[in-house]
């Protein structure tokens, strides 16, 4: 195809009609079987949960939960972000994360956070590139994988704006 090699990557929302795609992805990407609450949260988050399509094939996803803090402000918790192995290194994860970052900014959401297993250096440096920082360490967060500890990785955006 020569010049036509650039493959389009697009994002699509998650609905009950295609929820199975997200489940399929999770079943190969993560060692955890997610419960119904996870999927309910993902659906409830609306635009914050997305599937990524690589020339019409669903290859990755970002799933978030919107949480209300005590002071009434909303923060975003990234439950999962993953791309199928053969399709990594093509900027798909970046595109998914950027989507959530931009959306948060638009909606004046100041805080985005997630948990990362402490040994997952690739992930930690990936998030650092986007301005995330390690804000906390939780011991024995996981029950059946080692190491059981995790970091809380957080990004605060537009703080000055949101505090106005």
């Amino acid at each position: 195809m020569g010049a036509g090699r650039a493959v389009s990557i697009s994002l699509d929302g998650v609905r009950d009609k295609n929820l199975m795609q997200l489940k399929k992805l999770n079943s190969v990407l993560f060692p955890v079987r997610y419960n119904d609450k996870y999927y309910a949260d993902a659906l409830a988050s609306g635009e914050f949960t997305k599937l990524a399509y690589y020339s019409d094939i669903c290859v990755g996803s970002i799933a978030c939960r919107l949480e209300k803090k005590e002071n009434g402000a909303v923060r975003v918790y990234i439950m999962t972000l993953g791309v199928l192995a053969p399709y990594r290194g093509l900027g798909i994860g970046t595109k998914l994360l950027n989507h959530v970052l931009e959306l948060s900014q638009k909606q004046n959401i100041g805080e985005i956070y997630l948990h990362v297993q402490t040994n997952n250096e690739d992930a930690i440096s990936f998030y650092k590139k986007f301005g995330f920082e390690i804000t906390e360490t939780i011991k024995n967060y996981y029950t059946n994988i080692t190491p059981p500890d995790c970091y809380v990785v957080t990004k605060y955006i537009g703080q000055s704006q949101s505090k106005k």
């Binding site: 079943s27 990755g60 999962t80 791309v83 290194g89 690739d122 590139k129 996981y142 995790c150 990785v153």
Partner: peptide, 28 residues
């Protein structure tokens, strides 16, 4: 039939050669 697909098993030692997007952040 999932098991038949042989795809549910997970290999936590995700290869270092994998690129940055090989991300697994977990929430329980």
């Amino acid at each position: 039939s999932h098991t038949e697909n042989g795809s549910i098993e997970f290999h936590p030692s995700n290869g270092k050669a994998q690129t940055l997007n090989a991300l697994k952040n977990l929430a329980v």
